[in-house]
Write a protein that binds this DNA or RNA. Structure first.
Length: 309
DNA sequence: TGGCAGGGGTTGA
DNA sequence: TCAACCCCTGCC
């Protein structure tokens, strides 16, 4: 089986950058479904990528360390969002019981600032897939189409690299029907039909409209890219788990509330840092012991349709 | 052990 | 609005 864990020792001779950030929860951040490029190694440290630099990251005594050959503090600070005004971000959250529970479950859960193409491609691969499977697809795409930056470490393939590949070769990475979407999206970017750099300069609504022009990109994936790659912290992606939370916690006893209604509610209710709130709620319902009952109830109550909508 | 339902979504009719 | 799309996992 392909795993996302490369050879740790290959980067242990690189530069180490660090900063004292006691209120950063690295494990929750890397394990909360916003990135598919990091894995926990046997020694508890995290192996992954800051851009095209293979890195190892860990925390000790409130200090955050990242090691990688050629890694700069600027690059680490940008990717891990070290400079975000965290207390101010938290202060902008609405006060309610569920957000308080989610925050208490994983204090210091942050958002990353990832590469737009890698994030986009990763989420196109994610539809109706579980996180472990997405990580395997990510690793397979790297191994087949990436550049070997260090022994055992392959960069994420460029849009050009995937556009030039045969769709059948993408399917061989366990992509299934997603292969067609990813191939077409890569083609659209290579052809200049959609420009990821320009999207970064657009207001959020216009940026979302541009992303929605890409094959395999609907509202959920567009919102994930806006939040995790373009740093639009107000964007609140609504996937099936968050949809269940919103229905259960904010619209109890109300049947037939449309997803669009939930999205409108989320945009206004959760405020300017709604994306951060979403990440807390998402991580809480997936992993918190106290949410176990809610998870089971929702699975049973789920309608038999295959799409989860 | 094998069969089958279902999964972090989008597309196109 | 809903079936179809692939493949893998977990449950019975």
């Amino acid at each position: 089986m392909i795993t996302a864990i490369p050879a740790v020792h290959q980067v242990r001779s690189g530069e180490i950058v660090s900063r004292f950030i006691p209120d950063y929860n690295l494990a929750a951040t890397l394990d909360s479904g916003q990135t598919f490029s990091w894995s926990r190694a046997e020694d508890g440290r995290w192996c992954g990528w800051v851009g095209e630099t293979p890195c190892v990251a860990w925390q000790e005594g409130g200090r955050f360390f990242v090691q990688g050959r050629g890694l700069t503090e600027e690059a680490a600070a940008h990717y891990f969002q070290w400079n975000l005004a965290w207390p101010e971000t938290l202060a902008s959250f609405p006060q309610d019981e569920w957000i308080a529970r989610a925050r208490a479950h994983a204090p210091g859960l942050r958002l990353l600032r990832q590469d737009p193409w890698e994030t986009l491609a990763g989420f196109i691969c994610s539809s109706v897939k579980q996180i472990v499977q997405i990580q395997q697809i990510n690793a397979e795409l790297r191994r087949r189409f990436g550049r070997e930056a260090a022994p055992g470490w392959w960069t994420f393939p460029s849009a050009g690299g995937l556009a030039a590949a045969a769709e059948a070769d993408l399917r061989a990475c366990r992509l299934g029907f997603r292969a067609r979407h990813l191939h077409r999206a890569a083609r659209q970017i290579v052809d200049g039909e959609v420009c990821l750099e320009k999207i970064g300069l657009l207001p959020t609504e216009a940026a979302r409209a541009e992303l929605l022009r890409l094959a395999g990109v609907g509202e959920k994936i567009a919102d994930c890219v806006l939040l995790f790659a373009y740093g639009r912290g107000e964007v609140f992606p609504v996937d099936v788990w968050v949809e269940r939370i919103l229905r259960r916690l904010y619209f109890p006893g109300r049947r037939g509330v449309a997803v669009q209604r939930l999205r409108r509610f989320a945009r206004t209710h959760f405020g300017p840092s709604g994306g951060h709130v979403q990440q807390f709620l998402f991580h809480w319902i997936r992993t918190a012991p106290e949410a176990e009952t809610l998870r089971k109830t929702e699975r049973k109550a789920k309608k038999p349709a295959r799409s989860g909508r």
